[in-house]
Design a protein around this nucleic acid. Structure first.
Length: 209
DNA sequence: AGGCCGATGGCCT
DNA sequence: GGCCATCGGCCTT
């Protein structure tokens, strides 16, 4: 028998189409004890070529190199000195783009998930927010570049039940200052795991001393 | 329910 | 040196 798989060419598409495609897909992450599986319910699209908010907008660097590579790979970055966030590369090899994984619902491995996110006060909070989701899946620097389409990978992207188009909502990306009005955030209407919209923090509020 | 703020380090100018 | 694709705690409505 063969397990259902996501095909790389399904991600070799524009970031907006890839974002819609990824809603409802599953991500499976192995732990030593078990496997945690989540269902994606909120994502954001970032396109290197013409999107000032994308990490790849100003060209290729060591950090954003995965965004320029083949689709279906994990782009993990470190932000605010303490959090990791995870993206899936898309667009054909050579064209920079990625979809940020913002929120998910736990499908299986709930006990392991709760251990990884002990501060969550409800199961809906386990993976509500990109850093929380990365923590739940155990994603860190060493997972950067991982091939999510490889069935032998410790973190895998799997197809889920498709989300009916009428259940997909769009709006501006959370916490993004550049190109703040682009409705490139996509989420599943009614999911309790979808994070609330927050505008980016206004500049000039940090104090010296 | 929503705003404000501190923590904390890598990346880029 | 400033800016972050954030979170959690504390405060005010």
């Amino acid at each position: 028998m063969t397990l259902p798989t996501v095909h790389r060419e399904q991600l070799a598409v524009d970031v907006l189409a890839a974002a819609r495609f990824l809603l409802g897909c599953l991500v499976a992450a192995d732990t030593p004890e078990s496997t945690v599986v989540v269902r994606l319910v909120e994502v954001e699209a970032y396109r290197g070529a013409d999107d000032p908010a994308a990490h790849s907008y100003r060209g290729r660097t060591a950090r954003n190199a995965v965004m320029f590579g083949p689709p279906g790979h994990l782009y993990v970055y470190f932000v605010y000195g303490m959090h990791f966030c995870a993206n899936i590369s898309c667009l054909p090899d050579g064209q920079p783009g990625a979809v940020l994984l913002r929120a998910a619902e736990v499908v299986s491995g709930l006990a392991a998930a709760r251990l990884r996110r002990p501060t969550a006060r409800s199961d809906a909070e386990l993976a509500r927010g990109p850093a929380r989701l990365a923590t739940l899946l155990g994603l860190r620097r060493e997972h950067n570049g991982l091939d999510l389409v490889d069935p032998l990978s410790p973190v895998r992207l799997l197809p889920g039940d498709p989300i009916p188009a009428g259940q997909i909502r769009t709006g501006p990306r959370v916490g993004v200052a550049a190109a703040y009005d682009r409705p490139w955030r996509f989420w599943v209407d009614g999911s309790p795991a979808v994070s609330a919209y927050r505008r980016h923090r206004v500049a000039g509020t940090t104090r010296a001393g």
